[in-house]
Simulated scan of single mutants.
Amino acid sequence: MANTHAQLTAPEISQLWSDCLSDTLILCQLRYFEQHVEDQEIAQIIQTRIEKTREHYGFIVDLFNAIGYPIPVGFNENEDVDINSDRLFTDHYMLEFLRQLSQISMNAYGTAAAFSTRPDIRQFYADRLQDSQQLNEEATSLGIDKGYVIIAPSLPIPSKPDFVKKKSFLTGWFGERRPVTGSEITFLFANIQRNAIGAATMMGFAQTTASKTLQRYFQRGKDIANKHIEIFSSILRENDVPVPMTWDTEVTDQTSFVFSDKLMLYQTLALNSLGLGFYGLSMSNSPRHDLGVHYTRLMAEIAQFTEDGTELMIDHGWLEQPPQAANRRQLMNE
């Protein structure tokens, strides 16, 4: 068995550092949700998630302290959230937020576990993956029971196995387009859902920031998300496939301070980064040419939006330096 006191590898330290920072942000949001949720079943899921997140954060802090690694500043309840401010999001939004969080976490922790080599880190991420799977089970089951979760469409059952016979299977722009495959539907459907929660989040952020610059930025994010929803929805409608609902009505008319500008901008960049990853995965699972072109140009739009947001973070002095390799040129000059 590998040495549990071995030096952390680049994948391990990078993921732990990122998780440490993200945990502080999620705790701020969950504490705000806990203060305002009305449905007791959703409240129980939120409380459990708060306990798990604190436990995970504590593990990383103890580990960093043991090896002398600086702990990210991150976010805290004193500066980055007013848990007693008026309600900004409905219970419906909170449950969908938790469901989306579980899906993002399963993807991140599964990757982290695969790239980790120290046994304690592998076990840590295996446990976090299990926690995320449990959250997904609870949030999805409750959402279905309450009619919040829109079930993905089903497909007809073929009479026998078949093979693709024409290269038109790849056609998208010219000629007769074939129906979308089950895999293509899966990613179109999921990307609509992610953009829908993103658009609602951007709306809430735009309403509650005091900065005109950030208000315009968040409004731009909302417009981009809605544009992407419409593109993906039009493809599903063309194939007579049901389209998921949007979440704009789950944002209240609250306009006073809820989350700090730093927290809202950081979360926006995090959502953008995840969106790029999901679009890349979607493109690799979508053989139709027109879908690949859509994903390529929409990824470019998100990348530009992310770059502009990163510059805002740097301008305000909010962007923490992530773990990186030694600057050998600088060391030699010194």
Rank of each mutant, 00 (worst) to 15 (best):
S211P: 08
I157P: 01
Q304P: 00
L274F: 14
N65P: 00
R328L: 14
S284T: 13
G292R: 11
I157Y: 11
E311W: 00
L135E: 07
Y266R: 08
F174M: 10
E12K: 11
S159M: 07
L271Q: 10
C28I: 05
E77C: 13
N195T: 00
E301F: 02
P322I: 06
F64H: 08
E12R: 10
K222Y: 11
E250Q: 15
F174G: 09
M203L: 15
L63R: 09
F187V: 11
G221K: 07
A303T: 11
M94R: 05
D23S: 12
Y93S: 15
A10C: 04
Q321I: 12
T90P: 02
L170V: 04
Q7W: 06
Q304A: 14
L30N: 04
D308Y: 00
A190M: 15
R288K: 06
A112G: 09
N239T: 00
Q40D: 09
N226K: 15
K52Y: 05
L188F: 08
T306M: 11
E138M: 13
E96S: 13
L276A: 09
Y69A: 01
T9L: 15
T208C: 15
V61A: 03
A108N: 15
F218D: 03
L271C: 07
E184D: 09
L8T: 03
G58M: 02
R329P: 01
R237Q: 14
G317K: 03
V149L: 11
C20I: 00
M264H: 05
E230C: 12
A10I: 11
Q133L: 11
S22C: 02
